[in-house]
């Protein structure tokens, strides 16, 4: 590794000075691809918003294999892109390896923490946002059962489920929360048919509010809930418009904002950990004209109270990721 660094230090200085002149930002999507209607697409939207507002250009790259993580991160840094925004927690090892070799390039990692002087780590308090939509679910609920469809059983997604269950039980301590996951292969994030199947199974068990945190799979969940005439909750982006009257709300995770901020701050951006929680407006629940009739004044009041309490530190939502235990399951 040390020999690698010395080589690259020399190599990047010699061979790539020609391309270092322009410093356009770059965006590296995680496996799953640009148009996943969820995490990566939110990043793309943030970048496009920046492009529309500033007229600047940016480089983007989608991966096909894990070996390309390091390869592409290096190539972007060598090509003079700055800052380089890298999506997904699986890229934490990538940046641990690549970032020290390019000290003049700023890197931004979304969804994980890497402690290096030229890396900004943006993490989201998904459990807090999920808590709020869990409360809304329990208040809209009539059957005594709500449910959750996750993409894959990994700590990140279980944190969504755990926050959701805590919020639901805060409203109704006896509520039954069904939790299912779609699969174990990457296809789990993009399988709307399977998502629909799971949602229908949960609805037949009595669930009348289904929360999907499963990328593209969630589209099938929302469709199944709309077909069955029950409520659903979208994730990441505002998905209220997909089935007005059926989508109760969406758990917002403002990945687009994080990308937009990084692009706006430009080279030499402030590094360190950026926590996008309720207080920072990084997570939340969506309220717009499509679900205005579904969220009553009392529901909104209760959620706003909880939101204020969480921000003030009076109410703490347990984060599953800290100890792999969920008090609400």
């Amino acid at each position: 590794m040390t020999s690698l660094k010395t080589f690259l230090g020399a190599g990047s200085a010699l061979a790539f000075t020609a391309t270092l002149a322009h410093a356009d930002p770059a965006l590296m999507f995680d496996l799953g691809g640009k148009f996943d209607k969820s995490f990566n697409e939110a990043a793309y939207n943030g970048a496009e918003r920046w492009k529309a507002e500033t007229g600047g250009g940016y480089r983007e790259i989608e991966m096909q294999a894990a070996a390309q993580r390091v390869q592409f991160a290096r190539r972007l840094a060598e090509a003079g892109s700055n800052p380089v925004v890298v999506m997904g927690f699986q890229n934490a090892p990538t940046l641990e390896e690549v970032a020290p070799d390019y000290p003049d390039t700023s890197f931004v990692l979304i969804d994980a923490v890497v402690d290096l002087p030229n890396v900004r780590s943006v993490i989201f308090a998904e459990h807090e946002g999920s808590y709020l939509v869990g409360m809304l679910a329990a208040m809209a609920n009539e059957t005594g059962t709500v449910s959750f469809v996750g993409g894959m059983e990994i700590p990140l997604i279980t944190a969504f489920a755990c926050g959701f269950a805590q919020g639901a039980k805060a409203v109704n301590a006896d509520i039954n929360v069904i939790v299912n996951y779609t699969g174990d292969t990457p296809a789990a994030w993009n399988d709307p048919v399977r998502g629909g199947e799971i949602a229908r199974a949960q609805i037949s068990q009595g669930s009348d509010v289904v929360f999907a945190a499963a990328g593209g799979t969630g589209l099938g969940v929302l469709q199944a809930a709309a077909d069955a005439g029950v409520y659903s909750i979208g994730v990441d982006s505002n998905q209220n418009y997909l089935h007005p009257g059926s989508v109760l709300t969406s758990m917002l995770k403002l990945v687009d904002q994080a990308v937009y901020d990084a692009f706006t701050d430009g080279p030499g951006l402030e590094t360190g950990v950026v926590l996008m929680d309720l207080a920072a407006g990084g997570v939340g629940y969506a309220l717009d004209e499509h679900n205005a009739d579904l969220i009553s004044a009392e529901m909104q009041e209760a959620v706003e109270a909880a939101r204020a309490a969480i921000i003030a530190g009076e109410l703490s939502v347990h984060d599953y990721r800290t100890d792999s235990v969920c008090p609400a399951f």
Binding site: Q90, A112, I154, P155, L156, D184, R321
Partner: peptide
């Protein structure tokens, strides 16, 4: 894939790490 997912999340993953 399921077996690997289980082993990585529950056995091999260092405590506190997000990445399976």
């Amino acid at each position: 894939a399921s077996l690997l997912g289980y082993v990585l999340v529950n056995v091999l993953r260092p405590q506190g790490s997000q990445d399976p």
